[in-house]
Design a protein around this nucleic acid. Structure first.
Lengths: 195, 195
DNA sequence: GTTCTATTTGAACGATTGTTCAGATACGGT
DNA sequence: ACCGTATCTGAACAATCGTTCAAATAGAAC
């Protein structure tokens, strides 16, 4: 029978992923060794293989879980009455969600090239799904004449790129509150899609 | 006496940097070995050390030369009469310059963490200088009441982030011409900083 | 054609890589 | 108290890493 108490299995697994997350984010997947991860957990390198078949799967799982969480949280947003409102909600959600998980976000787009082709394709599907949500909002706003957008596909990517920029500089202890940042970005996004 | 003809020195050096550039961009600095670079040049790994003291210097030189080129080209732009015109020029310049050098650009901001502290600090100075040029434009436009910006520092980073997004999707053989892309982005940037 | 030297080779270095696995360990169930 | 097994250790594997260097090579100068 599987142990239900006292087992290290339920503890070591998450700790390994947490350590890998931090190390991958800080030094990059290729620059981090399994021994470094093990060292951070306080375990020998061999023990990691009770929790992951290999290093690649460790990276993939981190990215996959992150994308799943992102899409789930996005789906949990309340319905809105107008595209403008939906866009505002999206901007706020994107900023807050991503600032809460800087390591996951960093990895999710810096380490794409270190995924195998199959794993990459799987992540790409999820990423595309997220982008499509935004593009749908922009299209609906365009149809309802709330927005004035030359190319919704480009606008989608431009907005996301702009919002992602926040992670390169935002620090909790900085001069701006999260609400202020959200307000400033919403202003810029709103104007960039309005006539 | 130094050889002036037939010497491989003047040829091998640039070829090494070109090979390293492509490989670093595609696979990442940490994932590329000196032997891979040498192989692409058609030379043994030991020969690389006639042209670079070590792998780190190879990366640093690529990034440093790129930043120097960027700042030089930026400085060569003609003077403008208004901040709006200056911003338009900046947007066009940024898009064109970066799309011409996808590998350099990719490395310049993906491999920052693989620089030693000293090398990182040196690149950071150049990057900051580039950003300051944009922020100055935004400030002047703000003072002249051409722009309406809540926070010029954030706006600077947001605009650059947005423009950088173009490199993740633009392909020469795609449906949009460079001029069209430039126009679309200029539209979005202009509106995002206007009242 | 000989000399000189810039350039490259090819082997070697110690260190580190991801991964495997037999044996030690420690805990839950009985 | 003993058993069974989930978990971990610690050593080993072959491969590869960045770097060094004596020896080989090849082109320029005379």
């Amino acid at each position: 029978m599987a142990r239900t108490q006292g087992s290290h299995s339920d503890i070591t697994g998450p700790r390994i992923r947490k350590a890998a997350l931090g190390l991958f984010a800080r030094h990059g997947y290729a620059a981090v060794s399994m021994r470094q991860i093990a060292g951070e957990v306080g375990v020998q390198a061999g023990a990691l293989y009770n929790y992951t078949p290999d290093k690649q799967s460790l990276l993939f799982r981190l990215m996959h879980e992150h994308m799943q969480d992102l899409l789930t949280a996005l789906g949990d947003l309340p319905a809105t009455e107008s595209a403008t409102e939906a866009l505002k909600q999206f901007v706020g959600f994107h900023i807050r969600f991503h600032l809460q998980r800087p390591d996951e976000v960093f990895i999710a787009y810096m380490e794409l090239r270190n995924l195998t082709r199959e794993n990459f394709a799987e992540i790409e599907v999820l990423r595309r799904r997220y982008e499509d949500t935004l593009e749908t909002i922009l299209k609906e706003g365009q149809d309802a004449r709330q927005f004035s957008i030359a190319d919704t596909k480009i606008a989608t990517l431009a907005v996301i790129a702009m919002l992602n920029g926040v992670m390169t500089w935002y620090r909790t202890e900085g001069r701006l509150t999260l609400d202020a940042v959200e307000g400033i970005y919403w202003d810029m996004v709103r104007r960039s899609v309005s006539g």
